[in-house]
């Protein structure tokens, strides 16, 4: 998968980073991913049973917070617009972008699976940044930022690899776990596409419904007048309380 992935990253990056305004969005997406990762790492600090790893998780979390700030800074310097601006300010974007879900990664995966995920995700990030730098796609300041971040990412890969190897030496199926994470990431990307595509198609059909369904009723609809009105209420009986939900 390595060579194929690198080729794919190169092609996609070459296209994406040359579209005007797109680098801001991509950097905003990086900032979001780093913020999400910080939350996952802090959850790991909270929940880990292996007290020796706590300090590493904590350092990792602080690194991710710093990276998020660095990426956000680059977005602003490049002239943030619209969604890119919102992405670096608004927590809701973390949910919208699928960066965070109802539970943290650590809660979902447990310690060993989490570590193997960290290894896979950080190694992927290193590869992605290396491709961007090798192809000289970002502007010089962003490239300098990526160089700074890469140092931390190498450290994250290194400690996660040590832990994964330790678990593998203890007989855990870590190779399989890492392969599963890689495929899961592909699956999640597909689900994101599916969801976006669904929103697009749903929007089309509902737009059609608006024209053919809502339009004919236009003459019956009216907005409420201003000022105090008499309230329409169902009262506080138990029967009323259980309705309209």
């Amino acid at each position: 998968m390595g060579l194929f992935r690198r080729a794919w990253l190169t092609v996609v990056s070459e296209v994406a980073w040359r579209i005007p305004g797109r680098p801001q969005r991509l950097l905003a997406a990086f900032a979001l991913a780093e913020r999400g990762s910080m939350l996952d790492m802090l959850s790991a600090v909270e929940l880990t049973e292996r007290r020796g790893l706590r300090k590493l998780y904590f350092r990792h979390a602080l690194d991710e917070a710093r990276h998020a700030a660095l990426f956000a800074g680059r977005v602003r310097s490049l002239g943030a617009i619209g969604r890119a601006e919102a992405a670096i300010e608004d927590s809701g974007q973390l949910v919208e972008a699928g960066v965070v879900a109802g539970t943290t990664l650590f809660e979902r995966l447990g310690e060993e699976e989490f570590l193997s995920f960290v290894y896979v995700a950080e190694a992927d990030a290193v590869e992605q940044f290396e491709v961007l730098l090798a192809r000289r796609l970002p502007d010089p300041e962003t490239a300098a930022t990526l160089h700074r971040i890469l140092k931390d990412e190498h450290f994250h890969v290194s400690y996660a690899r040590t832990e994964v190897e330790r678990a593998a030496a203890a007989g855990r199926p870590m190779r399989r776990s890492m392969a599963l994470h890689r495929w899961r990431r592909v699956g999640q990307a597909w689900l994101r596409f599916s969801s976006d595509f669904g929103a697009l198609m749903g929007g089309f059909w509902l737009g059609l419904a608006y024209v053919v369904g809502v339009g004919p009723f236009r003459l019956l609809g009216r907005l409420e007048p201003g000022g105090w009105q008499r309230p329409e209420r169902g009262g506080s009986s138990l029967a009323a309380a259980r309705t309209e939900g």
């Binding site: 509902l206 737009g207 608006y210 809502v214 236009r218 609809g221 009216r222």
Partner: peptide, 21 residues
Amino acid sequence: IVSTAVATFPRSWRSFPRQMH
């Protein structure tokens, strides 16, 4: 929401599909 979409037709063409989705 539906009643408002009716009362503001056709100006609500952008908000209606989003809200209904």
